[in-house]
Design a protein around this nucleic acid. Sequence first.
DNA 1: TTGTAAGCGTTATCAG
DNA 2: CTGATAACGCTTACAA
Lengths: 338, 338
Amino acid sequence: MNQRKVSIKEIAELSGVSVATVSRVINNNGRFSEETRKKVLQVIKDTHYETNNIAKSLRMKKSNTIGILVPDISNSFFANVVQEIESILFKKGYSTIICNTDRNEEKEEAYLRMLEGKMIDGLIVISGVKEFGSTAINKKTPLICIDRKPKDTKSTILIESDHYQGGFLATEELISKGCHNIAIIIHRDFLSSSKERLLGYQNALKKYQIPFKEENVIHVTVEEKMSRTEAAKAALLQKISEGYQFDGVFALNDRLAIGAIHAILDLGKKVPEDIKVVGFDNDPISKYCYPCLTTIRQDNMLIAEQACENLLALIDGTRKDMKKHQVIPVTLVSRAST
Amino acid sequence: MNQRKVSIKEIAELSGVSVATVSRVINNNGRFSEETRKKVLQVIKDTHYETNNIAKSLRMKKSNTIGILVPDISNSFFANVVQEIESILFKKGYSTIICNTDRNEEKEEAYLRMLEGKMIDGLIVISGVKEFGSTAINKKTPLICIDRKPKDTKSTILIESDHYQGGFLATEELISKGCHNIAIIIHRDFLSSSKERLLGYQNALKKYQIPFKEENVIHVTVEEKMSRTEAAKAALLQKISEGYQFDGVFALNDRLAIGAIHAILDLGKKVPEDIKVVGFDNDPISKYCYPCLTTIRQDNMLIAEQACENLLALIDGTRKDMKKHQVIPVTLVSRAST
DNA sequence: TTGTAAGCGTTATCAG
DNA sequence: CTGATAACGCTTACAA
């Protein structure tokens, strides 16, 4: 019962027509009689014929495939966005090649070459490390960036969350719950997203006339083999041991926030009674930690939708009024930690 | 500076040789003079030529692409395994098409058709729902299953964790910490992995001469729009309200375990002092919840390695002594919850 | 309405 | 050592 792979040519022979006609029927393209249509379709059914997309791609110079570059698929934010993108594109008839770059520039470069060889119709780069000026795919391949823009700052479209708003909302939440002395925990301060979040924090303070103090900014560096959570915990404990006092924490992501909570609990204080905590990302762990973590939710779904929509428009050439920088609103998810 | 895509033919012309020779040089295949080699390579470099893998695949009937079917990429176990597989295969020169099936049989079927059209060289199915007997890819496409075997039970290779051992270790841990009355929380009891874990639980009890009681088995059903965690918490609270007593919990996955912990804490009891808890999977949340969760770690890395190794052997035809059922050991990760 | 044939970019066979 | 050329499976003018 092991049917060999059957080609359009054999369908033609079995149906008593030419390959051209079969092709027309398959693609519902051009004219043919109802009779031949029926016959061809029947033969296709019988033989379990499936179009060879490789050949089709070669001929059409279109692969119906798009590439996604992602730094780390096991990060929940990335995983979610990718999953959503994949799902949307699938419905549109595109398949997706997901490339996990490990934030490694060489790997990224290698993937780009591979993708080019596969004649991808478009590319989505999430938080990419590489500047795309010199790369293999600098041609006309439609490109959308999410979360971070490559240095080659020309005309590529960037889609990202409203990090400023996120910082503002998080801080406002703490203030509204009575905090006056709010620590902010930052990991990668060079990221534009981090800077925006910090700015939101500062402006929220200003709005409520709370002075911004430099000593409230806690920078954590994550050593090799150490998680962000551990690093944040250690940094906070260190600072406290030096006499630092505070009544609220805004951590720039949920992993850091959990670290802060652990530190606080270890000292015998209570969250949220003694100190309140807000994170960022709405990582699943924020729902499962104890106490549950108030956090800022990025709209992964909308980011994905917008990325796909723009990319497809770019591919189809129906590029109307696409903004170069698209900012997606975030929302506060209020939980037990505040 | 926008170079059009350049083909082997143009390389030939620019180098003053034939396409055949260029092909030979590129693939280091056949004989050619050092001189021509140098010239051709130089032209390739100058023009930024990149092989068109679509054309190559068509000709070679080999795409150097493998497909992965995965139920849910945002599940940490799956995400990890997929990530690892992708990384290994990439090093071997294969690219990977990751297909997220959402446990949806139609989507799975559609993906299989798509993958066939892409002439994939091999397929890895993680916890698949479909029986592959009738499907598009029943040909000779090499196939490896992870975690669950499709019904069509013929000769496909299955790689999975030692679920029995996991159940045993988890239960033994609880017993060794003084538990005598251990609840077991089960979600999908029809899965063979669940059955094995239960069996391990029972045999561990037997080893320590603790009688197995049916009332200790808590089945949770997860309603639409409810997380496993919430469902487990609700189920446990319900049971307790009926007067049920216990001093330890073995939950068949970490999400369920977290639910149990939340239930226990809500009742004013302490973990691990009053009740101890063990989960399964070593989900990242197990490290970040409070208290941190003792759990069973599946060896994702080894599973991935073994899957790739077997698949590549199948593809190359160097299929020596491959066992049809390969069982990967698991380990206990002891944390605060016990 | 249908068939013929060219061509997409490669590799492999067969002569030279 | 190198060059023509067929073939991979498909789409699409152009003819009929």
